[in-house]
Write a protein that binds this DNA or RNA. Structure first.
Lengths: 145, 145
DNA sequence: CTTTGTGCAAACGATTTGCAGGATG
DNA sequence: CATCCTGCAAATCGTTTGCACAAAG
């Protein structure tokens, strides 16, 4: 766990970011999760035991991390911006019952061919978003919304 | 144009929606466009000549249309919710320079196989989002953000 | 010590809500 | 005519900003 912490510190420095406790906490937390928490979720997670970061700080830390490419935002539902420390290309699965989000490895859908785009469009990257039901929300008998 | 109007009225009625001038205008406008306007863009377009709809009405019309499946929302950038009267499955292209959004026909990427999902996940639908440059923003020499 | 980040509270923009009057079926 | 919709303004929610103080390099 300490090695991991050192790693995070090193990464932040490498990107030219000052290492503050708040930034460290936000980034370490994001790296520890794969469910793309919202800003609010990050804040309440970090402040669970003791108040460590104000909400303005969370947002500014997220922006700083985004600016250097350590974090990206994920938009899958209205009105909520989620954050993801996994900046490698990957796809998303969203359970339409409980809203849970699962990362899908890149190789699941890597067969998309960007050279087939309509004339004039040059594609650089793509991402697949799948809607469905997660393991806990199987619509076996009772259909979920 | 009048036949189209009749068609729109008929569709609204069929879905059990009262046909009001505002609802008609919102839906007809959305059907006339393929660039997924925001609520604000819809409002200013409709009020271009004469004030016809308040912003609360636009939102409630959009919700009513969404509820009956005539309109869906499209989330491709932060903080903006776009609306789309094309509820047939299709993909999206977003120019990362000017932000323009283009629909991509379904058949461009229909080769995705949802049976390959990780165990426990049951996929129902998917959508591909492509980032790149549109015809007016080709990064020939000067790179865009 | 200089630069950059933090915390607070107020500002902001998009969306929602409550309620009285008005239009639809 | 009963029901549902509109318009207005106020409320709400997530995010951003301004500024004084504090911490990082």
């Amino acid at each position: 766990m300490n090695e991991q912490a050192d790693g995070v510190i090193h990464i932040l420095k490498e990107k030219g970011l000052r290492v503050t406790p708040q930034r460290f906490a936000v980034y370490a937390y994001l790296r520890s999760r794969s469910d793309h928490p919202t800003a609010e979720q990050i804040q309440s997670a970090l402040n669970q035991n003791a108040p460590t970061s104000s909400q303005a700080t969370i947002y500014s830390a997220l922006q700083a991390l985004r600016k250097v490419g350590l974090v990206r935002e994920v938009l899958l539902e209205e009105g909520v911006c989620r954050y993801d420390a996994n900046v490698e290309p990957h796809h998303h699965f969203r359970c339409q019952s409980c809203g849970a989000i699962t990362d899908l490895p890149w190789q699941f859908f890597q067969q998309v061919d960007l050279s087939q785009l309509p004339p004039g469009l040059r594609g650089e990257a793509y991402e697949v978003t799948v809607r469905g039901w997660c393991d806990r929300c199987q619509p076996t008998h009772s259909q979920a919304k």
